[in-house]
Simulated scan of single mutants.
Amino acid sequence: MAAESQNGSGAGFGKRGGYRSGIASVLLTSISSNASDRDPNDIEAEIGSAAASFRLRAKKSRVYTITYIATDKAVNQTVRTIAVTVPHDQSEPQFHTEE
């Protein structure tokens, strides 16, 4: 049997050796803000959980940095971080995706 790619699709051999057969967990590890005047209610999230949704205060020009860590069954880990920016001009909804 040939090992498949390391991109999380299908089964294969992980970089730490041993047989791996998919994702074991995906955890929200942090959410931070660039605001110096941060209110405790700006971020409502269950850090350390598998949360796929959370609440962020949409205050002008604020940038939130969100980090998840994914672990497969062979204990290989990948960390992914994304920045969410609240636009200064909130008159029109703006949606941006990055490839």
Rank of each mutant, 00 (worst) to 15 (best):
G48F: 06
T71R: 14
I31W: 11
P87W: 02
A52N: 12
D89C: 10
D37Q: 09
E92C: 06
D89P: 09
D39S: 14
H96P: 05
V79A: 14
A52Q: 13
R16N: 15
T65N: 09
R57G: 02
E92S: 11
R57P: 00
A52S: 14
S53G: 01
S25G: 05
A11T: 15
S32T: 15
S91N: 13
T65F: 06
A35S: 11
S33W: 00
E46D: 15
V26G: 11
V63W: 03
K15P: 07
V84D: 06
A70F: 02
T78R: 13
Q94W: 05
T81C: 07
Y64M: 01
P93W: 06
A45M: 05
A24Q: 14
A83E: 15
G48N: 08
T85R: 14
A58P: 03
A51F: 03
S61D: 15
N7P: 00
A58Q: 03
K60W: 06
T71E: 14
N7I: 02
L27T: 14
M1L: 13
A45R: 02
R38E: 09
K15A: 08
T97N: 12
T67K: 13
T78K: 12
E4I: 09
P40A: 08
A83N: 15
G8S: 07
S30L: 07
S32F: 00
I69N: 10
R80C: 05
F54W: 09
N7D: 15
S53W: 04
P87I: 02
G8L: 09
S5Y: 08
G10N: 07
Q77H: 01
I43H: 03
A11H: 12
Y19S: 10
S30R: 07
N41K: 11
L28F: 08
E46I: 03
R55I: 00
R20Q: 13
S30A: 14
G8P: 01
G17Y: 05
Q6H: 12
I82Q: 13
I69Y: 02
S32Q: 03
A51M: 04
Q90H: 02
D42F: 12
A3N: 15
A50M: 08
E44H: 02
A50H: 07
L56R: 03
A24V: 02
Q6V: 10
A52F: 04
D37F: 03
V63R: 15
D89I: 04
D37H: 01
Y68P: 00
T71V: 13
R80V: 11
R20T: 12
V86R: 03
V26M: 14
K59G: 06
I43E: 04
A45K: 04
R80E: 08
G18P: 05
E92Y: 12
A83F: 04
G12C: 04
Q77S: 11
Q94T: 12
E92G: 01
A11V: 14
A58V: 00
S33E: 02
A52M: 10
A83L: 03
A50V: 01
A58W: 03
V86C: 04
I69D: 04
Y64C: 00
S21K: 08
E4F: 12
G14R: 07
A51Q: 04
K60I: 00
G8Y: 05
I66D: 01
P87H: 06
E98I: 04
E46N: 14
